[in-house]
Write a protein that binds this DNA or RNA. Structure first.
Length: 728
DNA sequence: GGGACATGCAGGCCT
DNA sequence: GGCCTGCATGTCCCT
């Protein structure tokens, strides 16, 4: 499997970006760019360190030796160590840990550089302000990665090593990793000695109090690999000169980094960056797939920095404030910790061993009153990863910010909620796994442990069969409750949707809005890179009427990604495109069920443990009516067929016919699902679309539609006159 | 060859 | 008898 496993603490970058693919398969990233899918796995780093190695890549990597785990595997997650990207040319030898403390062999030039580097970081922390208390200066921060992620999206999952003392990932597994500092944090900042303050660097975290830190830095510089340097051989300090020379030529890159440093000097420390390690192959591959060259590196750098920033901030927040709020959250809501005896229920974030914090989280928001009543049997919440910035999600097939439900979410769901839904009365009687950091503000209504549990269950490959059995058992226990609730509430969606979430106006629908401009679009699986013809998107966007009563645009083509999240983040843009389906005859027939595309369903909809599936409240964007549909699957050979049932009324109400399509969104703000039926009407001059009169016609149409569905790289834009089409 | 998916159709339930 | 449910099978596409 072409998987880049996002592992635990470091997972969020990959998780949100779908970064990179295994270099063993260069097509992976391209797959992701084609938007076919982005599968991201989070592995239980702490629990299954061998998992990475199981991919058989680590041991093949060229190694950047990570000396002292205490230094490099501190509280900041490492960037993805993409074992699957590991070059096959990588060494198969295990990374013999090198003592980072000593660096007698460091060259003077390296020493100079690293000294400057460290000093720069030292000053960044010299303000003495707890970074946790600083706002992410990139605004949401969580989303900047998206732009890069767009180019990095991969079908493959990614594997990010957890940072921990076990030397996971690069250090132990032998990844060809690059420390953040060693990679980007180096650059021309080395000359920016205005920040120099050697005293500060040793007065920070425990692991930075190592008086040999500077030496460590110096030494590691000898070993770092700068991806821009194609031929760089990280064999020793002799290459430093070449490397520095190369870096010096990359003023842009350095500028980016410097700018970032300035912006985040209060929030990110040198130590933070030192803990970020990226495989050489990863960076090279990423850069290559970003187009290569300086621009690609710059983009990648931004991505990484964004990740560092966001991840770090959240962790800091968690570390500084979570212990209390963490436990309080449990104590305040007994339901949140149904199993108080669960040993893992209140593991301090610092003790996390599995998952990283939800890196891509919006800036802390004051907790709000829950819009739902905690009901153990009522709801379910998928992986709570923070979704990508919504401003360009609704229109596009976006990578799942939460991983594919491979590992199994909470099974006892009745009404599934989109990720991060504050209305998701997610329950986990099992107590909750505390494997990853939790931003106390992120899911104020959800028990951290449960969220972690959820995340674990969904993401962690170590969610073993045992765990699955337990989940199944829980599901069975709650099954009756679910049914009762369903039966007693004809429209349970109200509870699910929450009352605080405004109904999305019909014009919010990007498809509709687009159609208003005279063209409707079938949004394909949007590739990370603009497909041919995608240039139409911005132009079309200009035709869009206000998508929102508030004047916000609920969708923005990925091509219009705003580099600066501080500007691009518009919370009101809250529709996240999940999937779409061109309706077949069988979908619009009287069966009242719609077959959903498997991959998209598995990726974007809650994982189904049981074939009975879950109830999904779907708000019709056009009518605001909430349809209580059922999302389920059928066993089909060795696979599954995913269905949306109880769609008959919806189809009839919207007058949907074969060839029309539905689009499903989630409201990233409210956590509800939205559905829209889009009617396709033939342009004037063409024969009105009629049901195929023959099997051949049916096949032709089916083939055409399948082509539409499958040809994700190209946006299929059906330009019609405004009068010749109908988009409800 | 395998996966995804459209749909045929058998069996049970309901009216 | 009609409807519903769910499985099976055929077709198409991708690898």
């Amino acid at each position: 499997m072409k998987s880049l496993h996002v592992t635990a603490n470091g997972g969020d970058l990959a998780e949100n970006c779908g970064i990179l693919a295994g270099d063993a398969d260069d097509a992976v990233l391209m797959d992701g760019m084609d938007g076919v899918s982005r599968e991201i796995w989070l592995d239980d780093h702490g629990g299954d360190n061998n998992h990475h190695h199981g991919h058989g890549h680590h041991e093949d990597d060229d190694l950047i030796v990570h000396h002292d785990p205490s230094i490099f595997y501190g509280d900041l997650p490492t960037l993805p160590d993409f074992p699957c990207m590991s070059s096959s040319s990588s060494s198969s030898t295990s990374p013999a840990p090198v003592n980072a403390i000593v660096s007698s062999a460091s060259s003077s030039s390296a020493a100079s550089s690293s000294t400057s580097s460290a000093a720069s970081w030292a000053i960044l922390r010299s303000d003495g302000e707890d970074p946790a208390h600083n706002q992410n200066q990139y605004g949401s921060g969580n989303c900047d990665v998206e732009s890069s992620a767009a180019a990095l999206q991969s079908t493959a999952s990614m594997e990010i090593p957890l940072e921990n003392s076990q030397g996971f990932g690069c250090g132990e597994g032998g990844g060809d990793c690059i420390d953040m500092m060693d990679t980007f944090g180096y650059m021309d900042l080395l000359d920016s000695n205005e920040f120099f303050d050697t005293s500060a660097i040793f007065s920070q975290d425990d692991d930075t109090q190592n008086p040999n830190l500077m030496d460590q830095t110096l030494e590691r510089q000898d070993q770092m690999v700068i991806p821009m340097m194609e031929n760089y051989n990280n064999s020793g300090g002799d290459d430093m000169q070449m490397m520095n020379s190369s870096l010096e030529q990359d003023d842009d890159l350095a500028s980016v980094f410097l700018e970032w440093l300035k912006n985040n000097k209060e929030t990110v420390s040198a130590e933070d960056l030192r803990k970020v390690k990226i495989k050489k192959a990863t960076i090279e591959s990423a850069a290559r797939r970003l187009g290569g060259g300086k621009e690609a590196m710059k983009q990648l750098l931004k991505l990484i920095l964004e990740w560092v920033q966001t991840n770090h901030l959240q962790r800091r927040r968690t570390n500084t404030s979570n212990n209390l709020s963490y436990q309080q959250s449990y104590q305040q809501d007994p339901f949140q910790n149904p199993n108080p005896n669960h040993n893992n229920s209140i593991i301090p974030p610092s003790d996390q061993t599995c998952f990283s914090p939800s890196t891509w989280v919006p800036p802390p928001q004051p907790p709000q009153q829950p819009a739902f009543v905690s009901d153990p049997g009522f709801g379910y919440m998928p992986a709570p990863n923070y979704p990508p910035p919504p401003e360009y999600l609704p229109l596009l097939e976006s990578p799942p910010s939460w991983p594919p439900p491979q590992s199994g979410p909470m099974p006892h769901q009745q009404f599934a909620m989109p990720p991060n839904s504050p209305y998701s009365p997610f329950q986990d009687p099992g107590g909750g796994f505390n494997g990853y950091n939790m931003n106390p503000y992120q899911y104020p209504y959800l028990p951290s442990g449960q969220i972690r549990d959820q995340r674990l269950l969904r993401l962690c490959s170590s969610a073993t069969k045992e765990a699955r059995k337990k989940r199944m058992a829980r599901q069975r226990r709650f099954l009756s409750h679910h049914h009762r609730h369903t039966n007693n509430n004809n429209n349970p969606n109200q509870a699910q949707l929450g009352e605080t979430c405004p109904v999305v106006a019909p014009q919010l629908n990007p498809v509709a809005a687009t159609a208003t401009g005279g063209t409707w679009m079938y949004w394909p699986n949007v590739p990370a890179v603009p497909p041919p013809g995608a240039a139409q998107l911005p132009a079309m966007e200009t035709q869009l009427p206000p998508m929102d009563r508030a004047g916000s645009v609920s969708a923005m083509p990925r091509q219009q990604v705003v580099p600066d999240r501080r500007q691009g983040w518009k919370p009101e843009k809250n529709l996240r495109f999940l999937l779409q389906k061109v309706l077949k005859q069988s979908d619009v027939g009287n069966l009242g069920r719609i077959v959903l595309p498997k991959k998209e369903a598995e990726t974007h909809l809650p994982e189904l443990e049981a074939r009975d599936g879950i109830s999904l409240a779907m708000e019709d964007i056009g009518t605001s009516r909430v349809w209580n549909m059922r999302y389920r699957f059928w066993p089909n050979n060795k696979s599954r067929m995913y269905l949306l049932e109880n769609t008959g009324d919806f189809v009839k109400t919207n007058g949907l016919q074969e060839g029309d399509f539905i689009v499903i969104y989630s409201d990233v703000k409210c956590g509800k699902y939205l559905i829209r039926g889009v009617k396709v009407r033939q342009p004037a001059g063409q024969k009105p679309e009629t049901p195929p009169s023959s099997a051949a016609a049916t096949k032709r149409q089916s083939k055409s539609q399948r082509s539409i569905h499958n040809n994700s790289p190209s946006a299929i834009v059906l330009a019609t006159s405004p009068t010749s089409q109908t988009v409800k």
